[in-house]
């Protein structure tokens, strides 16, 4: 399977980065360091330093006076005791976790099924459907959120109209003026549909790319042996595509864990009952007239630590796959 990597990459076929030769190109001793220096400066200043700042500010009181330039005062672990004693924090954490589990599960399931379907379709039909799927992927998060708010709108919303038309024994009655953004559960239902709609294409296209790299003989052999499609998927396709599923799973978890824009549009800062961790942190930091950036940082620190653990799994996996070679 030496050439599968090339296939997975899609067009243009970029082969695995060849091991750079020892011969220097061109002859510059500090060449590579000079070339990565600007990147290191940008990343250090914009990503690493702020991460350290979160760690520092989580133990400080940073409010209106500090925004005017006064030095921050250390308050020890007070920010953390505040948030851990706040029901809002546990509710937000719960929302974040439940949403991640449901949205990631649904994204992987829908994405994989669509990927398998695209692989079975004829060439022209496959390109056509993949093109449509790309459109969902390409929609900016803010417009996606606004479109779904409109689709699930109380007045003039299409979904309520359809649900009202469906027989009552199937979906119940009274849908016409149902407010989807009235309770956290219904808000998150819309959010999940919106986020899955936007993220399943990436899974589908990646799974398709992976499937195209599986040698057809394996499927022929499975067919000859009388394997059912279900069995073939779990015994042939899944093991071969496990690396792809692994990467997709980790990326989906990371993306769905920190979803902000869509929930901000659908529910907003006023609706505290429906917060997730990102929104809760943002609301504490900027939401009121007396900003509490220290408390916001403490919440962000919790979010960052969770994501770093997931990232560690991802990085370990990529290193083992030889991606950093």
């Amino acid at each position: 399977m030496a050439d599968t990597a090339t296939l997975v990459r899609g067009a243009p076929a970029t082969p695995a980065p060849p091991t750079p030769s020892r011969r220097k190109w061109p002859k510059l001793k500090f060449g590579p360091y000079l070339l990565i220096l600007p990147t290191l400066a940008v990343i250090g200043l914009l990503l690493f330093w702020p991460m350290i700042q979160i760690g520092i500010m989580a133990f400080q009181k940073v409010g209106t006076r500090q925004l005017r330039g006064e030095p921050a005062e250390n308050v020890g672990t007070q920010n953390f005791t505040t948030i851990f004693a706040d029901d809002e924090f546990w509710l937000s954490l719960q929302h974040t976790l439940y949403f991640a589990v449901v949205a990631v599960g649904a994204t992987m399931l829908v994405g994989t099924l669509v990927g398998l379907l695209l692989n079975r379709l004829g060439k022209r039909m496959s390109t056509f459907v993949a093109g449509g799927v790309m459109i969902a992927w390409a929609t900016p998060p803010i417009t996606a959120a606004i479109i779904f708010t409109w689709l699930f709108g109380t007045t003039g919303g299409l979904v309520n109209w359809v649900l009202d038309r469906l027989p009552d024994w199937l979906v119940g009655g009274g849908w016409l003026d149902y407010n989807w953004f009235g309770t956290p559960l219904s808000t998150y239902t819309v959010l999940t549909i919106c986020v899955v709609w936007q993220s399943f294409p990436f899974v589908a296209v990646s799974v398709l790319a992976g499937l195209r790299s599986v040698p057809g003989e394996l499927y022929e052999a499975a067919k000859v042996d009388g394997s059912s499609p279900w069995r073939t998927f779990w015994s042939v396709t899944f093991p071969l595509l496990r690396p792809i599923f692994m990467v997709l799973l980790v990326l989906s978890i990371i993306w769905d864990f920190k979803v902000f824009t869509q929930l901000f549009i659908m529910s907003g800062l006023a609706n505290r009952d429906a917060f997730n961790l990102s929104l809760y942190a943002y609301s504490e930091a900027f939401g009121s007239l007396s900003p509490k950036l220290g408390v916001g940082s403490a919440i962000s620190a919790v979010l960052t630590v969770i994501l770093l653990v997931v990232t560690a799994v991802y990085v370990r996996y990529m290193v083992r796959q030889g991606e950093t070679a």
């Binding site: 990503l47 991460m51 500090q66």
Partner: peptide, 20 residues
């Protein structure tokens, strides 16, 4: 590896220190 890690850093968290 650093490039991989920083791609995962949540922008939603960094907005607080960067605003400051």
């Amino acid at each position: 590896i650093m490039l991989l890690v920083v791609q995962m850093v949540p922008a939603e968290a960094l907005v607080i220190p960067l605003f400051l």
